[in-house]
Simulated assay, not measured.
Amino acid sequence: MGLPAIDGYPMPDRSALPRSHVSWRIDPVRAALLVHDMQNHFVGAFPAGRSPVVELVDNIAALRELAGTLDMPVVFSAEPAGQPPGQRGLVADMWGPGIGDEPDAAAIVAPLTPRPGEHLLANVRHNAFLRSHLGRLLRSKGRDQLIICGVYAHLGVLLTAADAFMNDIQPFVVADAVADFSAEEHTLALRWAARSGVVCMTDGLLRGLLLRREPKNA
């Protein structure tokens, strides 16, 4: 099995947000931004120029810009191309050989190309914490909140959020800055993500970050 052909669907709006079970507030001094698997191989499965991919890229770009302004760590996870069977493991049974050697297939989509000072981590499993140094990176930066965006909502995004929670890192899943195989799976992923963190909208998260930033010294 490989990636399915994904039809366009409307990005969820605020009415689709599940009820949060916690009252955590985002804090730019505590938070980092994770952009999960926004590679040409995965994003290319969506119809170009249509929802949800247009909003997906635009909203992630807005989060990334503000994170940079607020000196928050920005981390990109990316599946390596051409993984040998021994590295791919059981993922190959479920999803096939993964990203091949096609030019730029493994690259982050052009509007989000990582910049100097941002972090790019190899992601060999759906969960961005597994077999990576994401946890060590967050601890070294004194960060115990993680904003998660990218693809796919019911796979890497959800599993990463759950692992963050299990490791006492507060996950914030951005409902309109993730995307999935279908609207139904997107909605289901948000419902499950609310069991281990906060599910929010891009505009509300941006406002929260700006409200909580420390005033600069005069």
Score class of each variant (00 low, 15 high):
97 P>Y: 04
62 A>I: 02
214 E>N: 10
17 L>T: 07
142 G>D: 11
130 L>S: 09
211 L>I: 02
209 L>R: 01
62 A>R: 10
180 D>M: 12
19 R>S: 12
65 E>P: 03
110 A>V: 13
75 V>H: 09
191 R>Y: 07
41 H>T: 12
26 I>G: 04
120 L>R: 07
109 V>D: 09
148 I>T: 03
43 V>N: 05
93 D>C: 08
12 P>M: 02
57 V>H: 05
55 E>I: 03
193 A>D: 05
167 N>R: 05
81 A>T: 02
168 D>E: 15
63 L>V: 11
44 G>Q: 02
34 L>R: 08
79 E>F: 05
9 Y>K: 09
10 P>I: 07
130 L>H: 10
5 A>Y: 09
8 G>W: 04
128 A>V: 13
188 L>G: 08
53 V>C: 11
123 N>T: 10
28 P>M: 01
139 R>F: 11
187 T>N: 10
27 D>A: 02
114 P>K: 06
198 V>M: 03
189 A>N: 05
197 G>N: 00
24 W>S: 14
158 L>Y: 04
178 V>R: 01
76 F>E: 15
118 E>I: 13
2 G>C: 00
157 V>I: 08
186 H>S: 14
71 D>T: 04
65 E>Y: 03
132 S>D: 02
205 L>T: 00
102 E>G: 14
54 V>S: 12
204 G>V: 01
45 A>D: 12
114 P>S: 08
103 P>Q: 04
47 P>Q: 04
67 A>Q: 06
30 R>G: 01
86 G>D: 11
65 E>D: 13
136 R>E: 15
163 D>F: 12
209 L>K: 03
142 G>K: 07
23 S>F: 07
183 A>C: 10
20 S>W: 02
45 A>W: 05
62 A>W: 00
139 R>H: 15
74 V>I: 15
48 A>S: 12
12 P>A: 00
19 R>N: 10
18 P>D: 10
187 T>D: 14
211 L>R: 00
161 A>L: 07
23 S>I: 02
117 G>S: 13
45 A>F: 09
113 T>P: 06
125 R>H: 04
138 L>D: 10
175 A>E: 01
135 G>C: 03
25 R>M: 12
112 L>K: 01
179 A>Y: 07
159 L>K: 01
212 R>Y: 02
44 G>L: 08
27 D>K: 03
3 L>R: 04
5 A>E: 15
12 P>C: 05
162 A>S: 09
195 R>A: 14
39 Q>C: 08
32 A>I: 11
58 D>G: 13
64 R>S: 13
109 V>M: 09
17 L>N: 06
62 A>P: 04
110 A>F: 09
16 A>I: 06
168 D>S: 14
159 L>M: 11
76 F>Y: 15
59 N>K: 07
38 M>D: 02
44 G>D: 08
213 R>S: 02
138 L>W: 10
95 W>F: 09
159 L>Q: 07
186 H>D: 11
9 Y>M: 11
102 E>Q: 14
131 R>T: 12
120 L>A: 04
207 R>K: 11
6 I>K: 09
21 H>A: 15
171 P>M: 05
212 R>F: 00
45 A>E: 12
141 K>M: 12
19 R>K: 13
122 A>S: 14
21 H>F: 08
197 G>M: 05
149 C>K: 00
198 V>D: 01
12 P>R: 05
121 L>Q: 03
121 L>E: 07
138 L>R: 06
99 I>K: 02
189 A>P: 08
192 W>Q: 01
45 A>C: 13
70 L>T: 02
106 A>Y: 09
85 P>Q: 03
207 R>P: 08
